[in-house]
Simulated assay, not measured.
Amino acid sequence: MNEAAVNHEKRRRPGGRAAKVTEAVHRAVLDVVLEIGVEKVGIPDISRRSGVQDSTIYRRWGTRENLVLDVLLTASERTLQIPDTGALRGDLTAFATALDGYLKTAVGQGLLRVFSSIVDSPDTADARNAFWRHRFQTVAAIFDRAAERSETTTDVDARTAIEILVAPIHFRHLLTRQPCDPEFVDSLVTAVMAYCGAAS
């Protein structure tokens, strides 16, 4: 992991005063996103709302884009917990349904807009990659548990499986704006289970 990715990991798990600064700034950014939208996030306003000097914000995050991305990715990770229903179909259905619900929120919509509009820099690319690497490792627990229950084999590529599940949901929210109704979610879950060789 390079230095920028390491710094992102540290920002996600700070301690002491750094934790208080991070939480204050994150809360201020989320407040702005909820009140007036992600496009209106500005560091001077975040400084005023959080009580953290703008120089500290620039020193920690570098740019407005890095700040917004870090906040929205962190909020996503905290909100989308990994379900444990006792069955692969139940876990996949619960996770897909929660993702759809999250992407309907102001914060979820903000994350989609940031992902679609942000210009990649080494820092933003590292932050995004670190986030997805961690998310895929976390979601892999769904498939590990399924293998322990003998619902699947132990050689399932968890990353590919979860991409089959979540990519169409992101596509509908970002591009076609079609609803992700229960029938659609069920079809995605069935596709993932077929990929895993699990009985549907």
Rank of each mutant, 00 (worst) to 15 (best):
A5C: 07
Y195Q: 07
G51T: 11
A194W: 02
K40P: 01
L99K: 03
L69G: 14
H173S: 15
R59I: 06
V71W: 13
P122Q: 04
N66D: 15
D186W: 00
N66I: 08
D157Q: 05
I46M: 12
A18G: 12
A199C: 05
F115L: 15
L30V: 09
V156A: 05
T85E: 11
L175V: 15
D70S: 14
A18Q: 14
R11Y: 07
Q81E: 11
I43Q: 02
P122W: 02
Y195H: 14
A19G: 05
A127G: 07
A147Y: 02
L92M: 05
V71H: 07
N7K: 12
V166E: 03
R60C: 06
K10D: 11
S47P: 12
V114Y: 10
S121K: 02
V41R: 09
I162S: 04
A140N: 04
A98G: 01
D186N: 07
R89G: 02
M193H: 06
R11S: 13
V33G: 14
D91E: 04
S47L: 12
L34W: 05
V29L: 11
S55E: 13
S117H: 14
L73E: 14
I46E: 10
S150M: 08
F115P: 03
R145M: 03
D120R: 00
P14E: 06
A24G: 10
K10F: 07
A4S: 12
L69W: 03
A24M: 08
S117V: 08
A106L: 07
Y195N: 04
A5T: 06
D45Y: 10
A98I: 01
H173K: 08
Q53T: 10
A75C: 09
T79D: 08
E39M: 07
T138R: 05
N2F: 04
W61C: 14
A158M: 04
A161D: 06
G51L: 09
D84F: 00
E3A: 15
